[in-house]
Nucleic acid binder design. Structure first.
Lengths: 134, 134
DNA sequence: ATACATGCAAATCTTTTGCAATCAA
DNA sequence: TTGATTGCAAAAGATTTGCATGTAT
């Protein structure tokens, strides 16, 4: 079953592979595997919590902002909306994180809160339970 | 000049518009404007710092991780690599942010440090100054 | 004239989906 | 047999690019 192969590939990968990275890795040994299967299995595996998914706003869309000052954002995982979170931008993070990573020089950071926005919460209440995709 | 239109549209937009949102907005008044122009101008404007860009790993690629525990990441803005940052996951953020946003219910957060990884730093040293794209 | 800005269409890139074939219980 | 899994090709969605035209200096 290709799902095992996919899982094993992710587990043996030291970094943070993209779907294509995994495809490259597996197809060396199993040249007939399909990319669609890799995408499907990675998605399933991370939904199941068996592997992690590193993402933020992973819909491939860039969002722009009339604010240019550093601030944080909330991301509704139901409708995809991005809202401002008015926590003050904390430069101490950089100082805290700096000594942890030898070699990686940090210039800034982004903090994204995942959750559900008010509108979607209200819709949920009305419509009763509704599956949350993603 | 369409760059002005693009800028004005972003500034008058209350939320966090995507390129398509801006296109929809402008094309109502200027039906002949091209989507490519919107993309080009948004990109230029945010490079110039005149508007903000809300993104993380904004290459449209999802990265997977053999770790499933919550932790933070560094993103090399030169080569795109994702590295682990071993700061402990701080659940207090949620508590701190919760009261700020009425209606938005937070379930988790992501913290991404932007910077330059060791490899790219070393390459820079060797090759002298080299433009950093993006 | 020279460099820059635009529209259009085509190309790219990542991811998703429809469908028929295959495998497993 | 019935349902889940796969490969393949096509589709979808966001963004970029080549190119010819148009505009400004």
């Amino acid at each position: 079953m290709q799902k095992e192969l996919t899982y094993d590939a992710v587990m043996s990968y030291s970094g943070h592979p993209s779907a294509d990275d995994i495809y490259q890795m597996i197809s060396k040994e199993h040249s007939s595997i399909s990319k669609a299967t890799i995408y499907r299995n990675l998605s399933i595996l991370s939904d199941e919590g068996k592997i992690g998914r590193v993402e933020s706003f992973a819909n491939g869309e860039v969002h722009y902002d009339h604010r240019t000052d550093k601030h944080y954002h909330g991301h509704c995982r139901k409708c995809g909306r991005v809202v401002d979170i008015d926590l003050s931008y904390d430069n101490d993070f950089v100082a805290k994180a700096l000594p942890m990573e030898d070699g990686f020089s940090i210039t800034s950071h982004e903090l994204i809160f995942e959750g559900i926005c008010r509108d979607c919460r209200e819709k949920e209440k009305k419509n009763g339970t509704e599956g949350i995709k993603n």
